[in-house]
Amino acid sequence: MANGWTPERRARQAELIRRWRPWEQSTGPRSDAGKARASRNGWKGGVRPALRELARILRGDG
């Protein structure tokens, strides 16, 4: 494979991860600051469309 992972290596890693089960130890954010930061993970921005709308209004187009 181009990324260096052979099928054997991929199978071994998959088995190790199934054995470790890291998702069971994950607790997520505990502090209020961490929860606030995690709540913004999906935010993609949104400033540019607002600026375009403002420019349109200032030009008198809209």
Rank of each mutant, 00 (worst) to 15 (best):
1 M>P: 11
2 A>M: 01
3 N>E: 12
3 N>P: 05
4 G>V: 08
4 G>Y: 03
5 W>L: 09
5 W>I: 14
5 W>D: 11
6 T>P: 01
6 T>S: 04
6 T>W: 07
6 T>G: 08
8 E>F: 05
8 E>D: 04
9 R>C: 01
10 R>H: 00
10 R>G: 06
10 R>M: 09
10 R>N: 08
10 R>L: 05
10 R>W: 08
10 R>V: 04
11 A>Q: 10
11 A>K: 14
11 A>E: 06
12 R>A: 00
13 Q>K: 08
13 Q>Y: 04
14 A>F: 09
14 A>K: 12
14 A>P: 06
14 A>C: 05
15 E>P: 02
15 E>D: 11
15 E>R: 13
16 L>G: 01
16 L>V: 03
16 L>Q: 09
16 L>I: 10
16 L>P: 00
17 I>M: 15
17 I>F: 04
18 R>L: 13
18 R>N: 05
18 R>M: 13
19 R>N: 10
19 R>C: 13
20 W>S: 13
20 W>E: 12
20 W>G: 14
21 R>K: 08
21 R>G: 03
21 R>S: 02
21 R>M: 08
22 P>I: 10
22 P>K: 00
22 P>R: 01
23 W>D: 06
23 W>G: 03
24 E>G: 05
25 Q>A: 15
25 Q>V: 10
26 S>G: 02
26 S>V: 11
26 S>I: 05
26 S>F: 06
26 S>P: 02
26 S>D: 14
28 G>N: 07
28 G>K: 00
29 P>L: 05
29 P>N: 07
29 P>I: 08
29 P>E: 04
30 R>E: 12
31 S>Y: 00
31 S>R: 02
31 S>I: 00
31 S>N: 02
32 D>L: 12
33 A>L: 15
33 A>H: 05
35 K>C: 03
36 A>D: 13
37 R>S: 15
37 R>K: 15
37 R>T: 14
38 A>I: 03
38 A>H: 06
38 A>W: 09
38 A>T: 06
38 A>S: 09
38 A>V: 06
39 S>C: 04
39 S>P: 00
41 N>P: 00
41 N>Y: 09
41 N>G: 15
41 N>T: 08
42 G>I: 07
42 G>Q: 15
43 W>H: 08
43 W>F: 01
44 K>H: 13
45 G>H: 07
45 G>Y: 03
45 G>E: 04
45 G>Q: 02
45 G>W: 10
47 V>G: 10
47 V>S: 11
47 V>A: 03
48 R>M: 04
48 R>T: 14
49 P>G: 05
49 P>M: 05
49 P>V: 08
50 A>N: 10
50 A>V: 07
50 A>P: 01
50 A>F: 08
51 L>V: 11
51 L>D: 07
52 R>E: 13
52 R>W: 13
53 E>D: 14
54 L>V: 10
54 L>E: 05
54 L>W: 13
56 R>M: 06
56 R>D: 14
56 R>F: 00
56 R>Y: 00
57 I>K: 07
57 I>T: 08
57 I>V: 07
57 I>W: 06
58 L>M: 06
58 L>Y: 05
58 L>G: 00
59 R>L: 15
59 R>D: 14
59 R>M: 14
59 R>P: 04
60 G>F: 09
60 G>P: 07
60 G>Y: 04
60 G>C: 15
61 D>S: 12
61 D>G: 03
61 D>R: 12
61 D>Q: 14
62 G>K: 03
62 G>F: 02
62 G>W: 01
